[in-house]
Each structure stands twice: as C-alpha cells, then as structure tokens.
Design a protein around this nucleic acid. Structure first.
Lengths: 351, 351
DNA sequence: AGGTACTGTGGGAGCGCTCCCACAAGTGAT
DNA sequence: ATCACTTGTGGGAGCGCTCCCACAGTACCT
C-alpha cells in the first residue's frame, strides 16, 4: 500500500505542509512552532497552533528521525533473562526511577532483554542501526562486551555500577565504600570489636569497594584489623555459609560479621547457628541490599539499603545530559560523568 | 551534528547507495536483496551480500519507516500501573509468550504502561502518530475507550479477553465457558450434588461465560439448578467471603462451591471456616486462575488453569496476521479473528 | 519471423520532516 | 541618510529508503 506517487493526499494524516498552508505561513515556521523555537512571533505561533488543532496534526516520527538524525528513544538494556527481571525488585525499582525522570520528556523508553546469545545478537544489530539515542545499562558483569560496543558506536550510555575505578562510560553507583563504613561503624558503636567481613565476588568493583570501606572503618575506629577476619564469598548463600565456617575456625573469638549481601548473611547465619552462636547475643550480623530476605530473616537482619529508585533517576539524568551534549563521555577522556548516591543503614534485631 | 548539505559522506554509516556502488548494481537491486525479494539472480544477490558485509551496512530504520510507511514495531499496552505489572505473574507469562512468537521476526516490541491519566494521554498521542504497526492490549476493562480509539485510528490490534460477545477487535481468550464446565463436572464426579457458584464482576465478559458454563454443566449432569445457589462476587477476597456467607444462609445444605477466581475462593474459605465447615469434607472448593494463592492455600486449592503464555503467542500470531492483511478486523464486519484456548483443571486437596 | 510472456535490473520520484541560507523589515547608533 | 545588527520568515535541499515504471534479455509459443 501507499509508497509514492500521488498517494492519499486527501485522506491520510495531515502533514506539516498542510498545516503551513492552513495557517498561511511557510513550512519552516510551522516546524519552529512545533519544536518550540523562540524565534517566532506570538501572533504567528497562535495561528499555527490553531491550524494544528483544527487539522489534528501529529508530527511524523519517522520523517523527523530521518531528517534530524535522532530517534527520541532510549533503551533500558537488561543483560539478564526476563525471569530475573520480574523476580527481582531491583529492576522494577530502577524502572520506576527511570520512568519518573523520563515522564516530562518527549523521549520513549524501550525495554530490551539481552539474556540469551540470540537476544544479544539482535541487540548488537539494533544498536548498530542507531535505533536509540542512548542506552541505560543495568546489572553488567565485569567481562561484558556490551559497554565497549556502545563506546565504539559512540552511543551515549550510562551504566549502573562501574566495572572498575577506570570505567570509561558514564556511571551511577551507590556508595559502596561508605555503605561498608556505616555497617562497621554501626557494629563498633554497639560495642563490637572483632568484626569479620565476608566479601562478595571480588571481580565486582562494588565488592572491592566494600572491602576498602570495611578496612578503613576498622582502622579509623582503632579496632582489630587482622586480615584473617576477611574471607571471600561470592554473594551466594552457600558461599556465605562456607566463609562463615572458615572465619569461625580462624577467629573463634569474633563478635560481629559484616556480609557483602543479604543472601550471604543468610548463609552466614546458618553457619553461626550450626556452631551454636546466638544472633545478636554472641555474634552481631549485618547484611547489604536491604532486600526482602533481610526483613524476613530470623532475627530480622540489619542491612545497608541502596537507593535503587534514585539511582534510576540519576542514570536517566546523566544520559539526557550526555545526549544533549552529543558527545559520549568515553570520547572525552577524563572528564567522565559519574554519580555516587549515599546508602542508608537500616538497623534491625540482628545487631 | 548532521542535518543536510554535504554531510558526513565519508565518515558516517554506509547507505544503501554506497552498497549499490560497491556491488556494481543499482539501488533497487540492493533494496530487493535486503528485503529478501525472490526477484534477484543468485549471482547478484551474492555480490550484494559481500558488499553489505564489507561495509557493515545496516539499513536506516527511520528512512525505511518513512518510505514504506511502516515501523516494524508493536506495542504491548498494559492499562495498569507498573506495580501491578510486576506483581502479577499474568503479565510476565503473557510477555514470555509474546516474546517467543516475536523472536523470529524483525519486529520490535514496546512495552507501554497506561495506568495513569497522564500516561493514557501520552499513549493516545503515540498511537495517533502511528508509531507502531499494531497493538496488543491486555487486561482491558469493559468501559475502556482504548479499543475504540484503536479501531478509529485503524491500527491493527488484538485484545486479550473480549469485552463482550460482540467484540469488534480481534481477540484471544481462554475458554471460560469450558473451564467453568470442567470445574463443575469435576465436583460432580466427586459425588457433589448441590454445587454453588460465586461469580466474578458481571460486567466482565469472562465472568458471564463462567456462569453460563456452570449452569449448563449442572443441567447436563442433572444436578440441582436452584438459582439461589448462585451469588455475585467481584473477584475480590472480601466479595468471596460475603457471597459465601449469603450462600450458606440460603442453602445450608450445599456441598461444593465453584468460585470465579482463586482470590474469591480464599474469601469463601474464610466464611466456610467461620461457619465450621471443613474443606473438603463438608464442602468442596474450586477456584479459577491457578495462581500462587491456589498452591499455597490450606488445603491447596483445586483450580482452573488458563494457558497465559499460549494466549500471548496466539495474540502475537493474530496481530501479525492482521498487520500482514493491513486491514483491521474491525473494518471487515463479521469476519472477526478470534482464538479461544482450552483451560485445564488442576485438582488439589480442596475438592 | 513475429508475438507474448516472464525475469532481472536501473533509477526517478517521493515519503514528511529539519536545517540553513536568503532576505524583508525593524531598531538603534553613527 | 547610512551602516550594522537583530528578529522573523519562506522555502530549497537533503536525510536514506521503497515503490514502481521502464526496459533489456531470454524463453516459449504460434
């Protein structure tokens, strides 16, 4: 159907040209009004607006995208299977923040899952076709090639959780260092002096930062900084259990544990129970994420909350700036855009 | 950035014209190859494909959309707040089905929430701009103006759950009538003879059909068809409780209840417990939806399962057909496209 | 040999918009 | 009166593609 020739001149949707004719002005003027340019007299603007209303004119997105070389669309890329997306409140919180920030924009948000190889293939094509003006990347693993692809294509992008201290992409993160510090300071204030730490996967930058925060807080508080109080975990429950058992073997006198995630803390709790230690009487326990697990644990788990929704907003803000600048942070060397949001310690019965 | 004149001729993305030059053919031929037209000789096709690969050519979507008057995008419209979308497995199941059917297509799926008035306003603009080739509409209320807007704009659309027997839009539904019948037949086969029914909101077509199925099944089985065995509910738990209490008052001798939803059944269960009736010993209970509630109820609830994921697939299939035909079902009078999928009774301890 | 078909191909015209140049008209300084 | 701006406006050119017409070449009939 349609395509060319003298097609549907009368029947179809009105064009900018028809609006111009109706308002008795030129095409350029209508375009200026539509796009909110200040360089139009009030009288002319009013006339055009009347014509637009009468004709029910709506700009043709495709034509605009072609001529202006932009799409007014943004992709939220989730490098996970859909199931995880729906299962974890993290994503819906993030989405809410992003949506809130976007709602007074003309931009359109696309949700793209890239869990399988097939989906990733499609995504690469999609990005290569420049079908979006910018990309929001959440939950990226350290070895993910996606960020580099984005940098190479020079597509503005913002990542949640930088992959390292040398992250080239603009990024938003919560204050992992500060969060860890607050956990340790909280335990110290409760009179605990031999505080252990079960780390997350050490190839995750945030996990490294939590270790840094833990160490510095211990040192600043003048507490026991024995390296044997640190044991590796991997964010999993089983990892937490094993690490806890090892810590109890090495330092049976420990009186508190800061775990790098709530799930890890759940594992630690099992090991503590198995060893006959009471929480919090014998050993105080603090987790990270303030997830549902924390609230439902027995006893309820003290945890460090990250402002996920705020992070979504911040990501969107950064991205809109990047797009406005039309120069991805990656190409500007050290002048990176970053945002780090404060965490909040939620104290419960476990500490 | 770009715009016009002799812009980025060398640097930017390759165009179809450049591919044509490289392959030593005309623009038309490249277009045919890209779009998989059979009217190209094998030799020419191969040459073009080489040029495409060498140049890393990716078609410009905007230009294609403008010239061909199509977008290759489909919207899944959810007329609910995002929170409900994430809370109910219904949507994620539906999405999975839709996605599966779409994955071997070039089409792009957009997820659009239209819970608030503001969002609905935006959606209307969006549709008026014909930014999608078709729309999937899930969870529509009887008085929703959205379907009519779609019909008026002549945008191909498929609705999940027709609003009435006279639904003009193409639709996919589960077999509410048959599902209700199977519930009643199941109870009858368990030896129950005085089977009550708590309906859903009667302005929902599916709820009406369930009543029809209930009535016909009773009649065909030669059971008690006393109209006093039917009481209105509204899909809610409280509604189920009230209706159950009323039914017990009117027909204290009833020995089974078929509730129009699992949530309703949960309410009925409370009322039965309050009246000292044991489930299933005194009264057998069957729900509808086979939701998580059914599995976790005490006792576990027998329920009618709808094939949500299959419905998603069916919707997508119907829509793709509609789009291919380029004539919305609404404009073809009685030649409507519909699909009705079978339900399945999941028997548990409550019956 | 002439006709009729079909296959494969090139390229003009056009999709509806934005960008920018050109230019008219007004304003104020010289 | 002249110049130098500024403000507002019209419209040409171009974005990269698809559609379709025209036409060359080949195949198969009369």
């Amino acid at each position: 159907m349609a395509g060319h020739g003298t097609r549907g001149r009368s029947g179809g949707r009105p064009t900018l040209e028809e609006v111009a004719a109706r308002a008795g002005v030129g095409r350029g003027t209508v375009s200026r009004v539509i796009n909110g340019s200040p360089r139009v007299s009030d009288a002319t603007r009013a006339a055009v607006e009347v014509a637009v209303a009468e004709l029910g004119y709506v700009p043709n997105t495709a034509a605009r995208a072609l001529a202006a070389n932009r799409t007014d669309a943004i992709a939220l890329v989730v490098p996970e299977p859909e199931t995880r997306f729906f299962a974890e409140p993290y994503f819906s919180d993030m989405l809410r923040g992003v949506g809130a920030e976007l709602s007074d924009t003309e931009m359109q948000l696309l949700l793209i899952f890239a869990g399988s190889d097939r989906e990733r293939q499609r995504l690469a094509q999609y990005l290569a076709a420049h079908r979006v003006d910018g990309v929001l990347l959440v939950s990226v693993h350290a070895d993910d090639p996606l960020p580099d692809l984005l940098a190479q294509l020079e597509i503005p992008a913002v990542i949640s959780g930088p992959r390292s201290a040398a992250e080239r992409l603009a990024s938003v993160d919560s204050d992992n260092y500060g969060g860890a510090r607050s956990a340790v300071e909280h335990l110290a204030s409760r009179g605990r002096g031999r505080i252990a730490h079960i780390t997350g996967r050490m190839d995750v930058y945030g996990a490294q930062r939590r270790v840094d925060g833990y160490r510095d807080a211990l040192r600043d508080a003048g507490l026991d900084t024995d390296e044997r109080l640190i044991e590796r975990g991997d964010f999993s429950e089983e990892g937490g259990r094993l690490a806890m058992a090892e810590l109890l073997r090495r330092r049976p006198d420990l009186d508190a544990v800061f775990a790098a995630s709530d799930v890890t803390a759940a594992g630690a709790r099992h090991a503590l129970r198995a060893a006959g230690r009471r929480i919090p009487d014998d050993v105080a326990l603090v987790g990270y994420d303030d997830s549902a697990i924390a609230r439902h644990m027995d006893p309820p788990l003290t945890s460090v909350r990250q402002p996920i929704q705020e992070m979504g907003r911040a990501m969107m803000n950064l991205l809109l700036t990047e797009i406005a600048d039309r120069r991805p942070a990656a190409s500007r060397g050290l002048d990176r855009h970053q945002a780090v949001l404060a965490t909040e310690l939620v104290a419960r019965a476990s500490s």
